[in-house]
């Protein structure tokens, strides 16, 4: 049963990775990267790696998304590809 849950998360993971690299607006790209990190964190919590999941929830979904957004606001928001 748990592998169905895992597979759904893994599929979403690939989808969010592709979207965050394809979208032209860099602000949305950073937000979707945050979603990607959070899905990764869920996956690791399911694999019993609680410490790693905790770190990823704090670092990946929280702080690094904020860093990306700060840089996007200080540079330009459009991307050519």
């Amino acid at each position: 049963m748990i592998w169905i849950f895992d597979s759904i998360i893994l599929i979403f993971l690939v989808v969010t990775a592709i979207i965050s690299l394809q979208v032209k607006d860099l602000l949305s790209a950073s937000m979707i990267f945050g979603v990607y990190s959070f899905l990764m964190c869920l996956l690791w919590a399911g694999m019993a790696a609680v410490d790693v999941a905790f770190t990823e929830a704090a670092v990946g979904a929280g702080v690094s998304a904020v860093f990306l957004i700060a840089t996007v606001f200080r540079t330009s928001r459009r991307s050519s590809d």
């Binding site: 694999m47 690094s64 590809d81």
Partner: peptide, 25 residues
């Protein structure tokens, strides 16, 4: 292949998490 530097950095982070996923698996 991406031209935008922020896109490149997002790609780098995705690469990194992929490696971590491998190790945790």
């Amino acid at each position: 292949s991406k031209n935008n530097l922020i896109k490149k950095l997002i790609g780098m982070s995705i690469f990194q998490t992929a490696i971590i996923l491998f190790y945790v698996s």
